[in-house]
Design a protein around this nucleic acid. Structure first.
Lengths: 194, 194
DNA sequence: TTGATTGTCTAGCGGTGCTAGGATTCAGGT
DNA sequence: ACCTGAATCCTAGCACCGCTAGACAATCAA
């Protein structure tokens, strides 16, 4: 029994290594640079080993996305908890800032989650828990500022989409980088009902 | 002279053919299916011909993006002009609807403009006119609902980013498809100052 | 010790964007 | 009408991609 368990541990460790290496490489040089060859070389195994853990590159992206979603949820909750005693407005501002900050600091992970195809299901039954939890973290803070007669889930979707638009357009150079903070403020001011 | 002119006309026609074919292929089967080989085959020339018109695939995407930007500007102006006499609120709603509708109807073109790398400059001096004009079309309608003391350009950026977020997340399956209309309404309600 | 199972690798397939260099066509001068 | 040089276009090939078949070595059960 113990031998099997050790093997399973080693296998799990290698899988974590693959995901961590893919993420690292993507953050360093972009997802285009994450090829199966390079990835295999970095983990010091041959290419086919990757396929004994994941169906393909897309599933590796998906794994990075899940990891990122869990981190994002933690980050958002920490940010709103930090502003817990300062009223709803401060909480929402902190939430928006934390979200945009996460997207800026982890562009490759953010892409894996929301831009690339990681083969994950969204907004459905079979959506992975980590993703649902990320959305839940948003909802927890936003439901109190949704406004009367507005469905909190719907409001969260709109708020999230707006943040997502800001994050992606800013990072893709479609919006001037300097005014990011002012845009976020304006968004919070208008969307949140205080 | 006339010979040279004819050649130049033919060359321009072929360039239009390349862009139109790339766009068509992208809308039919996605940008992944737009390979230099397939594209060359469809226009009935060999691959290297593409490179006598464009530096590479990225520039072809850029050309499609410019075409799309011009169309988007026309579409948006037509939509707001159609609601010209119905007050600012109707105009903004028409604008938002037209934008989201464009993104939904022309996903490949929309991707070329805002998701993919077409090698274009944004929000800068050397930004192509078509892109500036697209932004101008948004601004024309939105500046009157920016609210007092809010810079119209900044407000337009925020509004645009929000629409962009809705468009991309919806199309990528990250948001449930059914409630698109309600989300758009909520967004307009909150952002526009009437 | 043997035989089967598991794990890993080498080698290779069909595809990608892109380009060097040769063949062909054609305009313009004699 | 013919030659010549330039412009045009294509064949063939490079290095790389994601992915996989099949050989080989290591490990375990009997």
């Amino acid at each position: 029994m113990s031998v099997q368990e050790r093997k399973e541990r080693e296998r799990a460790a290698r899988e974590r290594l693959i995901v961590a290496t893919a993420r690292e490489l993507a953050e360093q040089q972009g997802w285009d640079a994450v090829t199966t060859r390079r990835l295999a070389e970095r983990i010091e195994y041959s290419q086919p080993v990757l396929y004994s853990h994941f169906r393909g590159k897309r599933e590796i992206i998906g794994a990075v996305a899940l990891e990122g979603a869990a981190e994002l949820a933690v980050t958002l909750r920490a940010a709103t908890a930090g502003a817990a005693s300062e009223g709803p407005r401060a909480r929402v501002t902190a939430l928006a800032r934390a979200y945009l900050d996460f997207a800026e600091r982890n562009p490759a992970v953010y892409d894996a989650m929301f831009q690339l195809d990681g083969g994950l299901a969204f907004a459905q039954e079979e959506t992975p828990e980590a993703l649902k939890d990320g959305f839940a973290a948003l909802l927890e803070t936003l439901e109190e500022v949704a406004g009367e007669g507005v469905h909190p889930g719907l409001f969260t979707e709109v708020f999230w989409a707006s943040l997502h638009g800001l994050a992606t357009l800013t990072r893709a150079g479609r919006l001037p980088a300097g005014d990011a903070e002012r845009r976020a403020e304006l968004l919070v001011d208008r969307l949140a009902v205080l």
